[in-house]
Design a protein around this nucleic acid. Sequence first.
DNA 1: CGCTTTCGCTACGGCTCGTAGCGTAACTGT
DNA 2: ACAGTTACGCTACGAGCCGTAGCGAAAGCG
Lengths: 212, 212
Amino acid sequence: MVADMQSRGSAHRTGRPRSVEADEAILAATRAALVDLGWSGLTLGDVATRAGVAKTTLYRRWAGKNELVVDAVAALFDELELPDRGTLAADIEGVVLQFAAILARPEAKSGLLAVLAESTRDDALRERIRTSVVDRQKRLVLEGRARAQVRGELPPESDPSSADRTVNLIFDMVAGAVVHRTLVSAEPVDTPWAQSFTRVLLLGLAGAASHP
Amino acid sequence: MVADMQSRGSAHRTGRPRSVEADEAILAATRAALVDLGWSGLTLGDVATRAGVAKTTLYRRWAGKNELVVDAVAALFDELELPDRGTLAADIEGVVLQFAAILARPEAKSGLLAVLAESTRDDALRERIRTSVVDRQKRLVLEGRARAQVRGELPPESDPSSADRTVNLIFDMVAGAVVHRTLVSAEPVDTPWAQSFTRVLLLGLAGAASHP
DNA sequence: CGCTTTCGCTACGGCTCGTAGCGTAACTGT
DNA sequence: ACAGTTACGCTACGAGCCGTAGCGAAAGCG
């Protein structure tokens, strides 16, 4: 999840090891700088000073601003979990509120949108975002579906490729709606909104499943 | 939609008027630079050169990169329309495809996300985006609802504040899903996807309306 | 033809970038 | 204990962009 530039596997058996505390200090300093200065105001020199490291140390681990911010923001999504709330509706509602709580943080807002903007011209960066941020969210959708199938709330998937398309559709609808309301409309994702959204989504899915 | 710094109403009856061609040349040059260089690579000096204008002229009209790109990208949304396709489903499908076609352009991708990132720390910029981009999209939702009510596909709104919340929810769901699929999942919004999405959305709304 | 405003051009200080070079610190294998 | 290897902090540097100031010329208006 962090740099991983040359430290693949168990390489580097000799020499001074990289400071792990420095890694965490740099990422924390990056998040703090995002809060104070935003994406455009953030400079690598400032981050290095905040972290108590030399600027050169920073450049040895990350290629640039983009990669650094991706790693700093990705750590925010570590706390994403899907506790079993008993029903599919409650599970969706919970993950929506959880996701929204992370997005509401100032370091996530400016950081995520900015690196997404850069990723439109940088495939490697897009891949990095996908594996360290997006896929971690998508896994919650798969988990939620599996649970609902066990409960009998959803039928087991018939065609695997069709089921895959459905998961992607649901993911774009859930994440998209939360992101859009939080970052574009700039209005809070509270419990009433999450309930309304969940209701429309589930009724839509149920309807689409019943009359094919 | 453009600068409007001092030229409010019919002010400035004396002196040399600002070149209107320069305005359009600068905005076009900005879009071209966004395609070639992306947001981070775009410099105001380069835009001025492309537009055949002095850098100082650019600064007399726009405060900075953010404002300039907002105006440049906002022009892309001028073509958004809602031709009557006969049914609510067809109308939604049409606007989804139309919106996606604009978002698929490289200048829209990097430009929009970048200014949105900046807007999280700049209220004036957020307001500028809202009036020149977001509200223009939202109007289509209102138009579509009005048409559907005339056709009898949707009931007339009972509680105005509740109807307002519903419009906002639909807007976030439609725009959010399209934005997320295009810019985050980086997969195309084609006709099959638009149909699946529209079906789930409409069935969900119908269900939510029937059992309150 | 004066008045006013915009235009193109040049020049500038200030800031950030990303890298190079150096001496020192930390850890490993013999 | 010692040599080998890698990371570290520090300093310095050229390059590029930013945003502004100052100038003379151009374009409208009364």
